[in-house]
Nucleic acid binder design. Structure first.
Length: 662
DNA sequence: CGGCGGTACTG
DNA sequence: CAGTACC
DNA sequence: GCCG
């Protein structure tokens, strides 16, 4: 768990080109020789685009030429000659000279393919220096063209030059949380601009919504722009409050394994706040600093206790740690949750090993899913390097193309789409390319099962987990069953599959793979949803809810809490909102009045501040001379419209809004 | 004191 | 319905 | 856990 976290590369380029945008401005041409096979080029193509760069159509428009290390001078020379001829330029008689001529007429930097591989592994722009090709290969290599090549400056060692990972001073980037927005923050158009959209889609600008909009920066799903999704431990803020952070993390983990998600969330937030603190907590006065605004009484008491006694009773008292640890381990088995873990623990299973032996004995009976989870416990715990995810995608894509031609589009979602260097599993979303294709393809379930069958057949998928066949739910048959007056939708025509796959290669591990097929109209919602992150989704959905909608992986609906007394049951309903209008993720953000967030900006850490809708806090903050981060952000965001303007828009005043807002 | 995300499958 | 899962 |  405490894995990954990688320092990003180096490269003194403008801060913007760091991380997820690392390929910004790069036009890459891959020399089609040697190990730069077509399929690898396809993978690279997707990756480079995802990172903000692109592939060049020809060497002549490239900024970077990528060359496989094993290509010999002669082969390269031959290729260069052809290229020159095709351009009507004179080529030299000998290959090496041709290469020189070519390289001089190009604007590009020549790099070894290992450079790209290193970039992909680290998800940042690795220093190019060590990967430069030496095109002035001495003539003698010519005579021995079967020698292992060599255009590469550092020879074979070049492959992993970056072992230093931890130490390389990766441009601190905005690691030091530059408080304000960063460039891409297209930022706040005023609420006013959002208004027409809402109207168009059937929403009204109620005062409550207006207030919500003005405070939207408080939601985690709007805190993008900054991104240091962690990064290295090297230089950044050596946590000042290490001891406290670890104590609250323990509490968080404790409640996590106990299944108290709310306390878990709370402690996670506390730990996160403390970790990001620009000062060390040493006295009770520190507790009044604005950064700690969000901490409640209980937590403050714990902090005080720590200041006074150097420890926190509640934390020390986590004798249970044993218990919690065992629970956590058992819950690590796919298909085992809190209840099962407790049950097993009660019957003497403390570890996975215990479970295995009891299964052998026949003392313990597991479900099919749990057996698979148990079998691959260790393998599933391994992160999947991004490069391998790419390969897995290729395999599935090949099957998709084979069976469905070009009618289906496929997107890899999850942490992969968010640009992480490694992923816990592979999450693929499929959808017809057009309504017409959708018709031709037939039901999503059929599409999915025939795809899965194919992958099974080639031995790629090795095991099935609960395979979502909701097919009996509504495939036509009896319609009269449920009271589905008026509302049409809810024939959730999406199909989902969970399984296990393995690349056909020697040491490859079994990996978790999810495949989903969604109807065209729901695609943007599914994409948004399955790209996550989890906390990001929750935040965005909470926001939507506060605005009076319910956002899901299928659509967005009007939502009305059956409030008041009695039961808040039968929660909401309402027709999904003109699904036709949502053609992309962007449309959903726009509809809600939220600023778009690129996938890599959705890596929300636990610190979704407050998200407590509207409030007087905003007003307070504006006046109080606070220096806190949150205050900075929100004050900018909420430059309230002038009174006249408000009236013009038909908004109520702040105070009224308060009362209305709940 | 109630809310804290929304959905879907298995059994 | 409870349990588990997905992001 | 914290918030309204």
């Amino acid at each position: 768990m405490a894995v990954s976290k990688r320092s990003c590369g180096q490269e003194a380029s403008p801060s913007k080109a760091l991380r997820r945008d690392w390929a910004y401005g790069i036009r890459l041409f891959v020399v089609p020789l040697g190990s730069a096979t077509a399929s690898r080029r396809m993978i690279w193509d997707r990756e480079i685009k995802a990172a903000g760069g692109c592939l060049a159509d020809s060497p002549w428009s490239a900024t970077h030429m990528l060359l496989s290390p094993e290509v010999t001078p002669v082969r390269l020379g031959t290729w260069a000659e052809k290229l020159l001829e095709a351009r009507g330029r004179p080529a030299a008689n000998d290959p090496v000279t041709s290469v020189r001529i070519l390289s001089k007429s190009l604007q590009a930097t020549w790099l070894c393919t290992d450079w790209l591989i290193a970039c992909l592994a680290k998800q940042c722009r690795v220093l190019e220096e060590k990967f430069k090709c030496c095109l002035d290969a001495s003539t003698e290599t010519l005579d021995h063209e079967d020698r292992d090549c060599h255009f590469i400056a550092d020879g074979p060692a070049v492959a992993k030059p970056q072992k230093t990972e931890g130490s390389s001073p990766a441009l601190p980037a905005s690691a030091t949380a530059s408080p304000a927005r960063t460039e891409a923050e297209s930022d706040d158009s005023d609420v006013e601009e959002v208004l027409p959209k809402l109207r168009v889609f059937g929403g009204e600008m109620t005062p409550k919504r207006a207030n919500l909009l003005r405070n939207r920066e408080k939601f985690a799903c709007q805190r993008g722009g900054q991104d240091p999704p962690k990064t290295s431990g090297s230089s950044p803020p050596k946590s000042r409050n290490e001891k406290l952070v670890s104590m609250f993390s323990r509490l968080q983990q404790h409640y996590e394994s106990l299944g108290d998600g709310w306390r878990e969330r709370s402690y996670r937030l506390t730990a996160s706040i403390l970790r990001g603190l620009p000062f060390e907590v040493t006295s009770e006065e520190d507790l009044d600093r604005s950064e700690l605004r969000r901490l409640g009484k209980k937590t403050r008491d714990k902090l005080k206790e720590f200041l006074n006694t150097g420890s926190i009773g509640r934390v020390d008292g986590l004798h249970m740690d044993e218990h919690a640890k065992a629970l956590a381990e058992l819950q690590g088995i796919w298909g085992v949750g809190l209840t099962t873990a407790r049950r097993w623990l009660g019957s003497g299973c403390r570890t996975v090993t215990d479970v295995r032996s009891q299964v052998q004995d026949g003392t313990l009976r597991l479900s099919a899913d749990q057996l698979i989870g148990l079998q691959f416990f260790e393998e599933f715990a391994q992160r999947i390097p991004r490069i391998e995810v790419d390969e897995i995608i290729q395999v599935v894509q090949a099957a998709v193309s084979r069976r469905f031609g070009n009618r289906l589009r496929m997107e890899a979602c999850g942490s992969f789409r968010r640009g992480k260097a490694s992923c816990g599993d592979v999450d693929l979303l499929l959808c017809a390319r057009s309504a017409k294709d959708e018709l031709a393809l037939g039901s999503t379930h059929d599409v999915l099962s025939s795809l899965v069958a194919d992958l099974h057949g080639q031995g790629f998928i090795t095991h099935d987990l609960k395979g979502g066949n909701q097919s009996h739910r509504r495939p036509g048959g009896h319609v009269g069953q449920d009271v589905n007056d008026g509302e049409e939708q809810q024939s959730s025509t999406a199909a989902t599959y969970f399984g296990v796959c393995q690349l056909a290669r020697v040491g490859s591990l079994h990996r978790r793979i999810d495949i989903k097929v969604y109807p065209v109209l729901e695609f943007p919602f599914a994409l948004l949803s399955f790209t996550g992150s989890g906390p990001f989704n929750r935040s965005m959905r909470l926001y939507a809810r506060r605005a009076g909608f319910s956002l899901s992986d299928h659509s967005i609906c009007r939502a009305a809490h059956a409030r008041g007394n009695g039961r808040g049951e039968r929660i909401w309903t309402g027709p999904p909102i003109a699904a036709m209008q949502f053609a992309s993720e962007r449309d959903i953000f726009e509809f809600l009045g939220l600023a778009y967030r690129e996938p890599w900006q959705r890596e929300v850490d636990a610190s979704w501040l407050a998200e407590t809708g509207t409030d007087k806090q905003a007003a307070k903050q504006a006046t109080a001379a606070t220096t806190g981060l949150a205050a900075d952000v929100s004050s900018q965001a909420s430059s309230p419209p002038a009174k006249a303007e408000r009236e013009a828009l038909g908004w109520k005043d702040e105070d009224e809004v308060q009362s209305l807002s709940d």
